[in-house]
Design a protein around this nucleic acid. Structure first.
Lengths: 95, 95
DNA sequence: TTGTTTGTTTTATAGTCATAAAACATTAGA
DNA sequence: TCTAATGTTTTATGACTATAAAACAAACAA
């Protein structure tokens, strides 16, 4: 699908979201994981604080690169592959 | 070609370079231009100052997204398509 | 009701980013 | 030598980013 300049704002959000080592690691982890991890799992895997993990996941969520499902107090995270296919085709396989 | 975590620093440079409206416009202009423009042409097309144009082109150059050839006092800019193919396959066609 | 787990928000801090304005530097023509 | 064109660097400024630490909040088990 061809994007236009009207998508530039979303495109910038996507690039901003991925212009950080921690968030790239989060995406890589989500890509390699078979089952969907919890928010705390992701932060723990990266060795960062809960509040820091929450901060970075919020940025990825705002950029629509991940989807989050809540079950009680727990939130499960999955990659939003359609967004990657649309804005960064082929990118995930380079991780 | 599959990239590894060792390429993460370069990957972050690439994403940082593209996480800005002005630099995305520069890349779009370079992609659509048949002949290679001068530094000043690019800045003028975007309506930004010479020093600002120099600043943004430096970031794109540092990220190896553009190649710059100097002829006397004039510098000509071209896209480094190999870098786009490696780090952002398919991205240029979405512009 | 209390305690635990999961997750978010707030505040403070240090560092980075994008721009303007001014100055600097190279090249080349007159 | 002087002027003009092209491009870079420096300084200052306001806005933004990433983190730590502390506090807050919802859900749920005991």
């Amino acid at each position: 699908m061809i994007l236009k300049q009207s998508d530039d704002q979303q495109r910038i959000k996507v690039f901003n979201a991925l212009a950080d080592e921690k968030r790239i690691c989060m995406i890589r982890l989500l890509f390699r994981e078979k089952n969907r991890p919890m928010c705390s799992d992701i932060g723990r895997s990266l060795g960062i604080s809960k509040s820091n993990g929450s901060y970075h996941l919020k940025i990825l969520s705002d950029a629509q690169l991940v989807s989050i499902e809540r079950e009680g107090v727990t939130k499960y995270v999955t990659l939003n592959k359609e967004m990657f296919d649309r804005y960064l085709p082929g990118f995930l396989t380079t991780l």
